[in-house]
């Protein structure tokens, strides 16, 4: 079980969190004209890298904040976590 450092609460066990997927996905602007392909890329298609992955987690059983985690998908090493409006240090 992973140990994740919530930027608001500190280190907590994985079972307090839920996973939220790729943190680099940007939702298209409201009202933006967008091709079906671009829209499908946003809704369905995700990279599945082996190695460093920046992703969203939600502290569901805690402060209920969404935040960013930089994690190695192969080793589960967590390099850094930060608030949504921050950038990773490493």
């Amino acid at each position: 079980m992973l140990e994740i450092k919530c930027p608001y609460c500190g280190k907590r066990s994985q079972n307090e969190f839920s996973y939220g997927g790729d943190a680099t996905i940007k939702r298209p602007q409201l009202g933006e004209e967008i091709s079906t392909e671009d829209w499908d890329n946003f809704v369905y298609y995700r990279d599945n890298p082996r190695g460093k992955h920046s992703e969203l987690w939600h502290h569901v059983s805690g402060c209920r904040q969404w935040f960013k985690v930089s994690r190695d998908t192969a080793t589960h090493e967590i390099f850094d976590t930060c608030k949504m409006n921050e950038d990773f240090n490493v």
Partner: peptide, 10 residues
């Protein structure tokens, strides 16, 4: 609730 929080925070 999680859905609303996601859109407001992310």
């Amino acid at each position: 609730l999680s859905h609303l929080e996601y859109y407001l925070q992310v």
